[in-house]
Amino acid sequence: MEIIVCVKQVPDTTEVKIDPATNTLIRQGVPSIVNPFDKNAIEAALQLKEQYGGKVTVISMGPPQATEALQECLAMGADEAVLVSDRAFGGADTLATSYTLAAAIQKLGTYDVIFCGKQAIDGDTAQVGPEIAEHLGVTQVTYVSKMEIEGDTAKIERENEEGYEIIEAKLPVLVSVIKSLNYEPRYPSVKSTMKAKRAQIPVWTSADLAVNPERLGLKGSPTQVRKIFTPPQRTQGVVIQKDTAREAVTELIQKLSDAKIV
């Protein structure tokens, strides 16, 4: 069974910085982690491999430093990893990102299951996985908490607002998984971590993919960020202390009137 996992290296949520000129995230030199939901996807892929055999290939689009994220995935148990990296991919929105990743997946060749995390914690769109499926023309199932394979059919448990539903889909299929006890990420061993550090991860650029340059990066992104700003810090509120509720209400009304709120 050929299994592919799409992962993203995201900035540490406490260290997010924005380039005021391009309105995009500054990633170089910023502490980064593997997107937590993508770790759930890796765990789901590894469990599928352990149950049915096959190979797990992890793929990521990002700057050169994203190699560190792929090494962590290899340490968890993935068999191969590929980094898709090129300045032409910079500033991509979900449509351009999914287009590029779909082209990379097609270059990898045949596949049975593609795993994605539910969403990335830096964008929270939950769009890239379903868009990849659309580009590839394969079935997609989101919010997956459990999965089994029977022949050429995937039996999938999907979470929704009212509970769970069971869906059957023909392979190949793309699924985005949620965080659950079924897919709690495993910890890599010291030996596997050291081995992953020595792994040579291939890097594919736009020249290696069958892509239209007009559909890459900022140029191929119909979604444009017009403005990013930090909301002003809230000032400390006013505490009203009076002997009676009537006096407190009277002073409150006076303060609201002075501030021209009422």
Results as ranks from 00 to 15, higher is better:
residue 141 V to M: 08
residue 141 V to E: 07
residue 142 T to C: 10
residue 143 Y to L: 15
residue 143 Y to M: 14
residue 144 V to E: 04
residue 144 V to P: 03
residue 144 V to G: 04
residue 145 S to A: 14
residue 146 K to I: 00
residue 148 E to H: 13
residue 148 E to W: 08
residue 149 I to R: 14
residue 150 E to R: 08
residue 153 T to I: 12
residue 153 T to D: 00
residue 154 A to Y: 00
residue 154 A to C: 02
residue 155 K to N: 11
residue 155 K to A: 05
residue 155 K to M: 10
residue 156 I to H: 08
residue 157 E to Q: 09
residue 157 E to G: 03
residue 158 R to D: 06
residue 158 R to Y: 08
residue 158 R to I: 10
residue 158 R to K: 15
residue 159 E to N: 07
residue 160 N to F: 10
residue 160 N to L: 12
residue 161 E to Y: 01
residue 161 E to K: 06
residue 162 E to K: 13
residue 162 E to W: 03
residue 162 E to N: 06
residue 162 E to G: 02
residue 163 G to K: 04
residue 163 G to D: 05
residue 164 Y to I: 06
residue 164 Y to L: 10
residue 166 I to D: 11
residue 166 I to V: 12
residue 169 A to L: 07
residue 169 A to R: 15
residue 170 K to W: 02
residue 170 K to G: 12
residue 171 L to Q: 02
residue 171 L to M: 01
residue 172 P to Y: 11
residue 172 P to F: 11
residue 173 V to N: 12
residue 173 V to K: 11
residue 173 V to M: 12
residue 174 L to T: 13
residue 174 L to R: 08
residue 175 V to D: 03
residue 175 V to H: 04
residue 176 S to T: 15
residue 176 S to Y: 04
residue 176 S to W: 07
residue 177 V to D: 06
residue 178 I to Q: 15
residue 178 I to A: 08
residue 180 S to R: 01
residue 180 S to K: 03
residue 182 N to I: 08
residue 182 N to Q: 15
residue 182 N to V: 13
residue 183 Y to D: 03
residue 183 Y to K: 07
residue 184 E to F: 07
residue 185 P to N: 09
residue 185 P to Q: 02
residue 186 R to H: 04
residue 188 P to G: 05
residue 188 P to D: 02
residue 190 V to M: 15
residue 190 V to A: 09
residue 191 K to F: 09
residue 192 S to P: 07
residue 193 T to F: 13
residue 194 M to W: 10
residue 196 A to D: 03
residue 196 A to Q: 00
residue 196 A to I: 08
residue 196 A to C: 05
residue 197 K to A: 10
residue 198 R to Y: 00
residue 200 Q to S: 10
residue 201 I to V: 10
residue 202 P to T: 12
residue 202 P to D: 14
residue 202 P to R: 05
residue 204 W to R: 13
residue 204 W to I: 12
residue 205 T to F: 02
residue 207 A to Y: 12
residue 208 D to Y: 11
residue 209 L to M: 10
residue 210 A to T: 11
residue 210 A to F: 04
residue 212 N to K: 15
residue 213 P to H: 13
residue 214 E to C: 02
residue 215 R to C: 07
residue 215 R to M: 13
residue 216 L to D: 09
residue 216 L to Y: 04
residue 216 L to A: 05
residue 216 L to K: 08
residue 217 G to C: 09
residue 218 L to M: 14
residue 219 K to Y: 01
residue 220 G to I: 11
residue 220 G to N: 06
residue 221 S to A: 10
residue 221 S to E: 05
residue 221 S to N: 09
residue 221 S to F: 01
residue 221 S to I: 14
residue 222 P to T: 10
residue 222 P to W: 02
residue 224 Q to Y: 07
residue 224 Q to V: 15
residue 225 V to Y: 01
residue 225 V to L: 01
residue 225 V to N: 02
residue 226 R to M: 14
residue 226 R to C: 02
residue 226 R to G: 03
